[in-house]
Computed example of a mutant assay.
Amino acid sequence: MTFIRAYLRASTKEQDAGRARGDLEAFCKERGLTLAATYEENESGASLHRPELFRLLRDSKPGDILLTEQVDRLSRLSDKDWDQLKREIKDREVKVVALDLPTSHMMMKSEDAFTGRMFDAINGMLLDMLAAIARKDYDDRRRRQAQGIAKAKAEGRMKGRPEDAERNQAILEMLRKGQSWNTIVRATNCSRSTLAKLAKRLVPLDEPEGRAS
């Protein structure tokens, strides 16, 4: 018996991973099919750290269907990671069906061996193409974001995180009292680089501020 397992993914905790559940259920209902299980997670599509996706694959039997809304829900992976995921899917003999890949819809029908192999080959080629497009879109957005940040910094529009004045004043007092850096780091959870910057603000007690060298 073939089981259809829906995979739903969103990139951040603030996004609704289950947003497309209704579309997947409607897709199956139109074809007289029923979802056996749904797997949801909030993880980046550019990472192979996808516990629910791999749980879906472990639960699957040969011939089961992995149903997803779009190919980019499955992969925004690098070529190396996409090849690894494809091997896992192939080894478990799972068929991938995506709503945005019409040729994959044929995978849900029982076909003769020749037709099945033909559609499998076509589907695999198109999956690779859409996965490559999804990765390019991911890389392009990251590049534009980095360019935007660099431009904002150059124009003085990005000042960085505001200083925690209260915490830094407490650190300065601890430094004046001679407490060790390790003690201060443990007590305030500040980085050693921040501590080094604050230490430079201290003026030796025997040298008045503003004294000429």
Rank of each mutant, 00 (worst) to 15 (best):
S60V: 07
R55W: 09
T103K: 04
L56E: 03
P62V: 08
L99K: 00
A121E: 15
T103C: 12
H49M: 11
L66S: 03
K80E: 11
R73E: 02
D112S: 08
S75T: 06
K86M: 10
A121R: 08
T68N: 06
D79S: 15
Q84R: 14
G63A: 12
W82C: 02
K90M: 13
S78D: 07
S104A: 07
L74E: 02
M107D: 01
L57D: 01
E88N: 12
R87N: 09
P102E: 06
K61S: 12
E69S: 09
E69L: 07
E88S: 14
M108E: 02
R76K: 11
V71N: 00
S78F: 06
P102V: 05
K109I: 08
K90Y: 13
L126Y: 06
L48E: 05
I65C: 05
D112P: 06
A121W: 15
K90I: 14
S47L: 09
K61T: 13
M108K: 05
L101T: 00
T115L: 11
A113R: 12
L57V: 07
L57M: 14
G45Y: 01
L99M: 03
Q70N: 11
K61L: 15
G124C: 08
M108H: 05
R92M: 08
Q84T: 13
V96T: 03
L57Q: 04
I89G: 03
M106L: 10
L67T: 04
M108L: 15
S60M: 09
V71T: 00
D112A: 08
N123T: 10
F119Y: 14
A98F: 00
D83W: 15
I122D: 12
T68A: 07
D59R: 12
R76C: 04
Q70Y: 01
N123I: 01
V94D: 02
L101P: 00
R55V: 13
I122C: 14
H49C: 14
S60E: 06
P102N: 09
A121N: 10
T115S: 14
D72H: 01
G45K: 01
L85W: 02
T103M: 08
F119N: 12
S75N: 06
N123M: 05
P62D: 10
L85C: 08
M106N: 08
R76T: 02
L74R: 01
K95C: 04
M107E: 03
L53T: 05
E111M: 14
V71Q: 00
L53F: 14
D120S: 11
D59P: 06
I89Q: 03
S75M: 05
D100F: 00
K61D: 10
D112V: 06
E88F: 09
S47D: 13
K80S: 14
D79V: 13
Q70P: 02
M106R: 07
K61N: 15
D81P: 04
M106F: 12
S44A: 09
L53Q: 02
E69Y: 06
E69N: 11
D72Y: 00
L66T: 01
D100V: 00
L101A: 02
H105F: 06
S44W: 03
G124K: 06
G124L: 07
I65D: 00
E93Y: 09
D91T: 12
N123S: 15
L85D: 03
M118A: 13
E93N: 14
K80D: 10
R50M: 07
A46P: 05
S104F: 00
L74Y: 02
L67D: 01
R117C: 13
L74C: 07
T68S: 10
D59A: 14
P62S: 08
M118N: 10
R50F: 05
S47W: 10
